[in-house]
Design a protein around this nucleic acid. Structure first.
Lengths: 395, 395
DNA sequence: TTCTTTCATTGACAGCAGAAAAGAACAACC
DNA sequence: GGTTGTTCTTTTCTGCTGTCAATGAAAGAA
């Protein structure tokens, strides 16, 4: 209906041509194998529309009729479940941090096939971009081994990213400003490139392939070096009018709390992010603790001061989640991030603070945790590439 | 496309039959008179589609060709602006509070033609419902004087309201639980009834007819007896998965702050809502101050203790807005409510606290105030009725 | 007067999805 | 074993919506 945003390169063989086809495809991606009748019920499409949407997708091989091996209702004509052929297409997802690049090769169902990471010594675009293209080439040759083409590349970067234009407006960690990343990498690699904020990319992965499947309102909270939050409202990822959203790390929880690098006092990030926890642990123990793992070990040894630091951090996170819950009323909050390793220490604080701050029915919100392997961020980037490939209007 | 939610009563003469017609109508409602060419540009519809959408609407009189009397470009064929005939239909909006009912008769452009209010002595449904129907009858006879039919009725109630089912799930102020308000009033009055939460209704009015026109992301903050917030994300009003959203009144700003009726400490509402301000003013002055007007008068007389109370309240509001801005990144925040009378006293606190807490580009958010006449809440209810009448898919 | 420019309308056309009916594949029942 | 019933799936037909391209309309400019 609308002309393509960027014209190069041509998206040959876009799988879904009509809105209905797109809808059917995304439904199948998220909800495993389904019979055509079931697809019709879920998408509110007529049976005829489903048939007409499925056929061309099966002809080009993105969908296959596959065994559901689930319990059948034993009455009426047996159903023929349809599923996405995960191996029919590959995607590359890349996450760029201040000191490393993580890259994965993922299939159409966003399962990781190959993972790579390289350390970075310099973070300027001139230094990083060649490393990205080299890594992409490496994964492209890997993909040849599967005999399947790579159909898209997603790149996740922290900071202010304009996905529709493919531009990194400002990334504090990388010290990048106004880099037309999608365009550059597209010309360098020949792949369709999608660029997005890292937390949003992770949120997309959860929305389509994770704990957010089927929910139109949820929040994804990441705990680690920073505290972030991805939001899905009305079934769409929230980007904010100025590219900033979900900045719960800088909610000020306590006006008398420790100063934050943002200039404010008592930000969640100044209490519960890794650097803040390390600082407090050093203060409590007097020991030169320099990694999250060391701090965690001390806590697990039972050091009461250290445990107290984690308890306070958990409380701050819980209150931040409480703010999100009160403001948006999501159906579910997914907690993830490297900091999840300390979840047992956070848990009580989070639960209590959330219970205290959630107002009324907002407290019915379901809170769950999800482990975050280090490739997960890159997988999120791959998910954005898959999303672009499908041509979903969810974005 | 979908079957009607409730079948009774039949929505005769629904103005917009096709999605395009609905889009054109809402565009014209929000953006005054427009030429057909301009409508096409704004809606991304072809000129042909606009012509075909406009014609039937003009035939039944909802749209008229009217003078734009604006500057014309002086080149090419002169344009024929089209506008909504505000007087072609009337709507009733009703706001129910704990101690009064406010009702307005509004035209299709949501301009108030008649306003009424009655005090309530009891707040149970058995007591209130007859008053509502009586008030509706009164306004219906008023409408006869205009020679135009009333096409819909909107009711706004504070608390947890399920608009799609027309049910008040729980209203703390009214002490109502699970009242099928829409159904009851529909059968009593014969009008199509829309029931919604009061803050959301006000948000709808701003979105279609106020300072939120054309914005897909904004927040409406109401200050007064309570502190509330309506949110529009991706062009749609946020209701939350459990009917609760925008509860910024119960964001906990200061763990050491005054206790709130919700059980938590330092809630915004426990610092900046009218009752909290009165309590603090009494504490500061020792005088038996019992109304917001008295407190305001003291502040304007220059009492430093009282001014300080307002300053702290302003700061709390500013930090609450900061939270919303950080979480959602809206394009604009509209501050309104009865408490706006004291805005000059709040202003500095709001501005400073917001500037301190807004992170990065989120600070670009535009903050503005809007006076709130007492009928405005009822006008919001009328706006929801108009929205239902148009059959907009925005909801 | 004729050209240019912009606005508006018309009729033909293509695409998408729904309705209804037919076909397919099984279980249960007599 | 045939019939009936149930559910899934496909086919055919139809209606509707919005786009395209061509045409007409109304002004100012050359």
């Amino acid at each position: 209906m609308f002309p393509a945003m960027r014209s190069t390169p041509p998206r040959e063989a876009a799988p879904a041509t009509t809105p209905a086809a797109s809808l059917v495809f995304t439904t199948l991606l998220s909800h495993g194998p389904l019979t055509r009748a079931e697809i019709g019920r879920r998408t509110m499409l007529s049976a005829a529309a489903v048939t007409k949407a499925v056929r061309p997708l099966m002809e080009v091989g993105y969908l296959v009729e596959g065994a559901d091996d689930g319990a059948r209702p034993a009455l009426g004509r047996p159903a023929n479940p349809v599923r996405v052929d995960a191996g029919r297409a590959l995607f590359i997802g890349i996450k760029v941090t201040g000191d490393e690049i993580i890259a994965v090769l993922a299939d159409l169902c966003c399962r990781i096939r190959v993972a790579r990471h390289v350390r970075l010594t310099a973070r300027g675009p001139q230094a990083v971009l060649p490393r990205i293209t080299a890594l992409v080439q490496e994964l492209l040759t890997e993909a040849d081994g599967f005999g399947v083409r790579v159909r898209g590349l997603g790149i996740a970067v922290s900071g202010d990213v304009d996905r529709t234009r493919g531009v990194v407006r400002y990334s504090p960690f990388l010290e990048w400003r106004d880099i037309a990343l999608a365009e550059i990498v597209e010309t360098a690699t020949g792949l369709p490139v999608t660029v997005d904020n890292d937390v949003r990319a992770l949120t997309v992965a959860e929305q389509w392939f994770g704990a957010g499947v089927g929910l139109s309102h949820f929040a994804l909270v990441t705990v680690g070096a920073g505290i972030g939050c991805g939001l899905v409202v009305h079934g769409r990822v929230v980007s904010g009018a100025h590219g900033v959203a979900g900045e719960i790390g800088h909610l000020s929880i306590d006006p008398l709390g420790p100063p934050c690098h943002c200039g404010n006092n008592g930000c969640v990030e100044a209490i519960a992010a890794d650097p803040a926890i390390l600082r407090e642990v050093r203060k409590a123990t007097g020991k030169p603790v320099h990694t999250a793992a060391e701090a965690l070990a001390l806590a697990h040894e039972g050091d009461p001061g250290v445990r107290d630091v984690y308890a306070r951090a958990g409380e701050a996170i819980g209150r931040a989640i409480g703010s999100v819950v009160n403001v948006l009323g999501p159906e579910r909050v997914i907690i993830s991030g490297e900091g999840l390793a300390a979840y047992d220490l956070f848990a009580e604080g989070i639960r209590d603070a959330l219970a205290a701050s959630a107002f009324g029915a907002a407290a019915q919100c379901d809170v769950m945790t999800r482990p975050l392997p280090f490739e997960e961020w890159a997988r999120g980037a791959a998910a954005t590439a898959i999303q672009s490939f499908i041509g979903s209007d969810t974005y």
